[in-house]
C-alpha cells in the first residue's frame, strides 16, 4: 500500500473501504460458491497437515523467487498459476470453452493494461479494477479448491497462525514484503486487489483474501451457518477494521508513511483462538461427506464414480 501524506484519516478510511469491499466480496462469494458449486476432485486425496507444510514452504520461498527471477519469468509463473486456478474453479460454472475465453480475456487485458494504461489515474483505475476481478476470482477458486478438497478448519487456523509468523518475519526481521509490493506494483498479474484514488494506491493482498475466504468457508463447512456468521464478524473486525486503522494509530507515534500492514499478524492469532473456542463449543468438525449430507449443503450433485473391477486378494 503506497500513500502520500495528504490526510491520514482520509487515507485510513479509503483504505478501510477498499479492504472491506475486497474481503466482504471475496469471502461472501467464496461461501456462495461453496454452497452452490461442486468442484471436481481427484479420485484419491484429501488436504492434510503435511499439505499445509508444503504450502508454507512454497509461500516462504516466494519472496526470494520474486527477488531473484526476471520479471518475464515471474509473469509466466503467475499466468500459469492464475490460469490453472481459474480454470479449475470456473469450468464447473460456465463450461470449459467459456472458462478458457474468460481467462484469456482477463489475463490478456491485464497484461495489456499493465504496459499501456499507467500514465493516468483513469488508466490506473481500469488496471486496478480489472486486476481486482482477476485476483478476487482467483481467491474464491483456490479457497474452494482447498476446502472442497478436504481442508479442515483446523488446518486453516494453523495456516493462518503460521502466516502470522511469516508476516511478522518478512515485515520486520527480513523486510522483503514491503519492498516486493512496492517494486512489483503495476506489473502484470500483481497479486493485489485494490484501487487508486488520486495519486495513492490502496490494496489488500491475494494471500490475505485467500485466508479470509478459507476461514469463512471452512467454518461454514465445519460448524454451519451460525458459526460462519461469527467467523465473518471476526474477519470484518480483525481483517478489516484493525488492519485498516493500524497505520493510523502508528502514525501518531512516528510520521513514517507508506506502511505495509502485516494483516495476518493480527488475524492469524485471532483466527486460531476463535477456532479453539469453536472446537470447544461445537466439538468435532463435520467432514465434507457429513456437510454434503446436511441441510446446509445446496450444492449441485455430480455423478458418483462407478468403480470397476481390479485386482483383489487371490482366493484359491
Amino acid at each position: 500500500m503506497t500513500t502520500e501524506p495528504i490526510s491520514l484519516l482520509q487515507q485510513t478510511f479509503t483504505e478501510f473501504g477498499v479492504i472491506m469491499v475486497g474481503l466482504i466480496a471475496v469471502s461472501a462469494c467464496a461461501l456462495f460458491y461453496f454452497r452452490h458449486v461442486r468442484m471436481e476432485r481427484p479420485p484419491v486425496g484429501t488436504f492434510n497437515g503435511r499439505d499445509i507444510g508444503v504450502l508454507l514452504v512454497f509461500i516462504s520461498t516466494l519472496p526470494f523467487l520474486y527477488a531473484v527471477l526476471p520479471d518475464w519469468l515471474i509473469t509466466c509463473l503467475l499466468v500459469l498459476t492464475f490460469t490453472s486456478s481459474l480454470f479449475i474453479g470456473y469450468k464447473p460454472v460456465v463450461g470449459a470453452t467459456r472458462a478458457w475465453l474468460g481467462i484469456g480475456l482477463l489475463i490478456g487485458l491485464n497484461i495489456w493494461t499493465s504496459h499501456h494504461l499507467m500514465g493516468s489515474t483513469a488508466g490506473w483505475q481500469l488496471w486496478w479494477g480489472e486486476l481486482s476481478i482477476l485476483v478476487g476470482l482467483g481467491a474464491i477458486a483456490v479457497a474452494n479448491l482447498y476446502v472442497q478438497g478436504g481442508m479442515k478448519l483446523q488446518y486453516v487456523a494453523w495456516f493462518a497462525l503460521a502466516l502470522a509468523v511469516y508476516d511478522i518475519i518478512f515485515a520486520t526481521i527480513l523486510p522483503l514484503t514491503d519492498k516486493l509490493v512496492a517494486g512489483y506494483l503495476a506489473h502484470p498479474l500483481d497479486p493485489l486487489l485494490g484501487m487508486r484514488f488520486g495519486i495513492d494506491n490502496y490494496g489488500v493482498g491475494l494471500g490475505d483474501l485467500l485466508i479470509y475466504a478459507l476461514f469463512l468457508t471452512a467454518t461454514y463447512k465445519a460448524y454451519g451457518a451460525h458459526a460462519a456468521r461469527l467467523a465473518f464478524g471476526l474477519i470484518v473486525v480483525v481483517g478489516g477494521v484493525v488492519t485498516a486503522f493500524v497505520p493510523f494509530l502508528l502514525n501518531f507515534f512516528d510520521t513514517e508513511l507508506d506502511l505495509l500492514v502485516p494483516s495476518q499478524a493480527f488475524f492469524g492469532p485471532a483466527a486460531f483462538l476463535f477456532y479453539l473456542w469453536m472446537k470447544h463449543r461445537y466439538g468435532r468438525e463435520r467432514t465434507m461427506g457429513e456437510y454434503r449430507a446436511s441441510t446446509d449443503s445446496a450444492a449441485l450433485t455430480t455423478t458418483p464414480a462407478q468403480p470397476a473391477p481390479a485386482p483383489e486378494p487371490a482366493s484359491v
Binding site: P42, G45, T46, G150, T287, A305, A308
Partner: peptide, 25 residues
C-alpha cells in the same frame, strides 16, 4: 500409503472422487 490416502479420502468425502474408474481399471 496410497491405501491410507484412500481411507482418508473416504473418511472425509464418503466416496472417491471423479475418475476413480481409471485408477481402478
Amino acid at each position: 500409503r496410497l491405501v491410507d490416502d484412500v481411507l482418508a479420502t473416504l473418511a472425509e468425502f464418503g466416496e472417491p472422487g471423479a475418475d476413480a474408474q481409471e485408477l481402478l481399471g
